[in-house]
C-alpha cells in the first residue's frame, strides 16, 4: 500500500515539475508587435515622437521579460501577459493620438491657408491702392514679388498636403501666414497714414 502511495506521489511530483512550464504567450507577443507596427504605419514616430519612443521602450522591456521567463526552469508568464496586453492597449492609444495630431495639424494648416487667402486678397487690394509715395515703387514691386512668393508657397503647401507631408506643410503654412500678416500690417499702416492725410 505504502509502495503504491509513494509511486503515486513520485509520478504526481514529476508531472507537476513538467506541468509548471506555462505556454509561451505567442498570441499576446504577436498582438503587441502588430499594434506597435500599426503605430508606425500612422507615422506616430513623426506626430507623437515621445509617446512612440515610450511605447517602443515598453515593448522592448516586456519582450525581454518574456524571454527571461522563458529561460527559467519554471516559466510563469502571468505578469508578462498583463504587460503585453497593456502595451497593446498603449499602442492603440498612441496610434489614436498620432492620428488626432495629424488631423489637428491638417486642420491648422487648412485654417492657415484660409487666413492666408484672406490676407492675400486684402494685401492685393491695398497694394493696388497704395500710394507710390516715399517708399517708392521699388518697395511696392518688392511687396508684389513677396506676394507672388507667398502664392507659390501656398501651391507648395497644397502639394505637401496632397502627398501627406503634413508636418512640413504645416510649418510652411505657418511661415507663409507670418509673412502675409507682416505685409498686411505694413500695408495697413501705409493706408492709415494716407487716410490721415
Amino acid at each position: 500500500m505504502k509502495i503504491k502511495l509513494l509511486s503515486g506521489v513520485a509520478i504526481v511530483g514529476l508531472a507537476l515539475v513538467f506541468a509548471g512550464c506555462q505556454k509561451y504567450p505567442q498570441t499576446e507577443v504577436d498582438a503587441a508587435n502588430a499594434a506597435v507596427e500599426a503605430t508606425r504605419a500612422v507615422q506616430a514616430n513623426l506626430y507623437v515622437p515621445e509617446e512612440f519612443n515610450a511605447l517602443q521602450d515598453s515593448l522592448t522591456t516586456v519582450l525581454a521579460a518574456v524571454e527571461k521567463e522563458k529561460s527559467k526552469l519554471f516559466s510563469n508568464y502571468k505578469d508578462e501577459v498583463a504587460k503585453l496586453t497593456a502595451t497593446t492597449a498603449m499602442a492603440q492609444t498612441v496610434a489614436n493620438n498620432a492620428t488626432a495630431k495629424k488631423e489637428q495639424l491638417k486642420q491648422e494648416t487648412a485654417a492657415n491657408l484660409v487666413e492666408i487667402a484672406t490676407l492675400m486678397e486684402q494685401n492685393k487690394e491695398m497694394l493696388a491702392k497704395a500710394p507710390k509715395g516715399k517708399e517708392g515703387k521699388a518697395a511696392l514691386e518688392a511687396i508684389a514679388a513677396e506676394l507672388a512668393t507667398i502664392e507659390t508657397g501656398v501651391g507648395e503647401v497644397n502639394n505637401k498636403l496632397a502627398s501627406d507631408d503634413i508636418i512640413n506643410a504645416a510649418n510652411q503654412a505657418k511661415a507663409l501666414k507670418e509673412k502675409a500678416t507682416g505685409i498686411n500690417t505694413e500695408l495697413t499702416e501705409v493706408m492709415a497714414k494716407v487716410k490721415k492725410r
Binding site: 521699388a138 513677396e146 512668393t149 510649418n171 505657418k174
Partner: peptide, 25 residues
C-alpha cells in the same frame, strides 16, 4: 530699395527671405 532690379531678382530676394525665415523657425 534704391536699385532698379529685375523682377526675377526681386522674386528671388523675397523667396530667399521667406526661406531664411522658415529655416530660423
Amino acid at each position: 530699395s534704391r536699385l532698379p532690379l529685375p523682377t526675377s531678382i526681386n522674386k528671388k530676394y523675397s523667396q530667399g527671405l521667406l526661406l531664411l525665415n522658415e529655416a530660423i523657425q
